[in-house]
Write a protein that binds this DNA or RNA. Structure first.
Lengths: 187, 187
DNA sequence: GTCTATACGGTGATAGAC
DNA sequence: GTCTATCACCGTATAGAC
């Protein structure tokens, strides 16, 4: 066996994450997950006792992975505008090329029906992104942290909104249109 | 009776719309709707045979109402910057003050699991908004229609993204932060 | 760890009485 | 137009065997 110890547990999270990305919190079920990976729903419950437990585990894993993949915003060897464009392109790859919304956007939409356990993880994830962007903008624009946070909020809103427009209109072009001011500013 | 002929039909749509706004397409049921307005689920099916039928009726009504409430973008008696700020403030009132996402944002999130009948209505709605904003920007910036569409896309993305950030972070302040560049530009 | 079996409520939808 | 009654699922979750 090449697979690691927690292979089934990982598979469950992978499949469930995909379901959430496609249809939100109410669109994934223990039965559907089990069927897809070839086990029974009772076995899924062995790894994750409740639905809330599974969902928050997925979100925690997602946040961790995302944090690890972000380069150090204060690494002087990397140009700040390069860092920013990399962030934008990474977002584009996820939500436009793959015709999806991000996991956190989907769960945010379902916030009203989310178990507290899950919604608690969401704010933390947004703060990771905002903190990173704030650092980058401080380098790029030589402004205070407060002013950089405003820029970070503007860009992050543009990114999330662009993904909504792309999905809603069926026109992938909207992403570049909606982000054109940011791209030209730091090209 | 003060109520009009189609009062029950209207009530059903009102309640269902609220459920969708709060939890998406999978979060409303004929039974829950019926219970809230004091009838049985079979009676709901009398007015709207299927779930897809009800959802698309709600979206069609929403689009129509929205279109009717928009002022004529080319009415020279109204200042163009006033039109734009009115649009932004209207959006803010819906998604920030009421702590909700808009109906179309929610349905867009659920696009992958939407009946074709429903998803077909979505693009049309976005196009109504974009066409209106494009007209306003043509007046404001004296630019070509293509250039105005870019501005319209940028603003609409900012608005939708801001609503996501507000929900996800629990910080209503993010709306004004994310929109500050637009507001200051046309104040 | 995974299985079978099962509990129990929710779901969209329909037939037919009033 | 609204009702009762019913259908065939699907949902989360658990007990207990292997």
């Amino acid at each position: 066996m090449i697979a690691g110890k927690n292979d089934t547990k990982r598979q469950i999270q992978d499949v469930a994450e995909r379901f959430i990305i496609q249809g939100g919190y109410n669109a994934f079920s223990f039965r559907a997950i089990a069927e897809e990976i070839g086990i029974k729903s009772a076995s899924v419950h062995y790894h994750f006792p409740t639905k809330a437990n599974l969902a928050s585990a997925i979100l925690a894993r997602y946040t961790l992975l995302f944090s690890e993949q972000l380069p150090n915003p204060n690494n002087e060897k990397i140009n700040a505008s390069l860092l920013l464009n990399g962030f934008i392109d990474g977002f584009k790859a996820k939500v436009v090329d793959q015709r999806n919304m991000s996991l956190c956007t989907m769960l945010t939409a379902d916030k009203h029906i989310l178990p507290e356990e899950v919604s608690a993880e969401l704010a933390a994830f947004y703060n990771v992104k905002l903190a990173w962007l704030t650092q980058v903008f401080m380098r790029l624009e030589q402004v205070t942290e407060d002013q950089a946070l405003v820029l970070a909020s503007q860009l992050l809103a543009s990114l999330h909104g662009a993904s909504v427009l792309v999905q809603g209109t069926n026109q992938p072009d909207f992403f570049d249109r909606a982000l054109s001011n940011w791209k030209s500013r730091y090209s």
